[in-house]
Amino acid sequence: MHAFGFDLHWRAPERLITVEDYRRAARRRLPSMVWTYVDGGADDRHTLGLNRSAFDGWWLRPSVLTGHDVHRLGTTAAGLELSMPVMLAPTGFTGLTRWSGDLDAVRAAERAGTRYALSTTSSWSLEEVAGAASREHVFQLYPGTGGVAADLMRRAWSAGYRTLFVTVDVPVKGNREGERKLGMGIPPALTPRRALNFARHPRWTYDMLRHQRVAGANVGTGGGVREAVESVEIAERELMQSRLDWDDLAWMREQWRGRLYLKGVLRADDATRAVDLGCDGVVVSNHGGRQLDHVPPTIAVLPGIADAVGHRAEVILDGGVRRGTDVVTALALGARAVLVGRPYVYGLAVGGERGVVDVLGILRDEIERALTLLGVRDVADLDRSHVRRADPPHHEELVP
């Protein structure tokens, strides 16, 4: 049972007590083509796996008999007050997982006391999502200097968004071979075998055909498949361009009056340059292992980036977080908060808004338990003294 207004009569269909439990349940509920989009990665999925396993490279260092019986999980990130240091990451085409995805996500975020970062390629428009919310949230935008980018920034500001995440690691779509092999695209490449797989998921298929909420609501004329094709073409032509450079980011900084964070940073020198240009912070991210394979996992580069810019800008981690201990590790290494993408999408697939609330509740419980066992009262107190690198070369280094 979790707080934040969770429906007391509702229970997840299975015994779901971890994010991984939700992952397995989500896989059963989604057609194979959609699942490979949700859970897949680029090339050999090397970075996708490392994002998760790299957390094993850090040990937590607890103190005992600290006398803390009340713990504070609240923080401020991206200029927004959070009840815990976890936000929902921008995920495109959320309607493929559940037709009401973006609306469910923003409502669930508010019920859990946190915020949602809405993707440019969302299935519901930024105005529709703002209308479903009662608090301020974040809008994610791909870089561009043309009319599409300018119009989206104008619309986002008018709708009440004051924080912009500019995602810069998609100059071209990554080589997601799993999606290509299963025909995942806009529109999808259907075969009799794939159509049969859809038929084995009648609830998903019914909702998809009835509601027509795929993507494209922000840069197209609607949310159906035809409009989604149009939106992808516009986004790739106007926003995801390899010719864009730091001058284009400077232009966006000039145009946007609110807080601006650069998302997709893996190098300290890039983080420094972004802050020098006036960014309020950076999001350490490799796009969930969906873009360039064989780049480092985000937790591995977080300390260096935090050391370079953490004293004058905010650092947020994105990638691989599945446990409350992951969140604690990231904060100890210099992050103000973390973003979770796939975990909340698993919750959407299983239970919609209620599933997302439950996933966030699982993480909240795990964070609080980890703080108790670490002997830490407040997430703001986490620092490098609470972690150390695992697997030292000599056993004598284990002695504190």
Rank of each mutant, 00 (worst) to 15 (best):
D39T: 13
R354L: 14
E238G: 12
T114N: 03
Y344G: 06
A306I: 06
E236C: 08
P343Q: 05
S53R: 06
Y261G: 03
A313F: 01
E254H: 08
V19P: 02
E230C: 13
D21Y: 07
G319T: 08
V86F: 04
V315K: 00
S134E: 13
A108I: 08
L331R: 01
R384W: 04
V327G: 00
G220S: 13
A3P: 05
W204E: 08
T298A: 06
G304R: 02
R336I: 01
L80Y: 07
G146Q: 04
P296A: 10
S385E: 09
D151V: 04
R98E: 06
N197L: 08
Y344W: 13
A78M: 05
D365A: 08
L382R: 03
D69P: 05
A156I: 06
S231Q: 10
L73T: 12
L333K: 00
M153E: 11
H137Y: 09
W124K: 03
L164S: 09
G222A: 12
G185K: 10
E233K: 09
N218K: 13
R180Q: 15
R388K: 12
D104I: 11
R162C: 13
H395A: 14
A130L: 09
V282Y: 03
D248T: 13
E177W: 12
V387R: 00
L292M: 13
E368F: 07
R364A: 06
M33V: 15
A313V: 03
P303K: 04
A306Y: 05
L360S: 00
H311D: 14
G160E: 10
E179P: 14
P392W: 06
A105D: 03
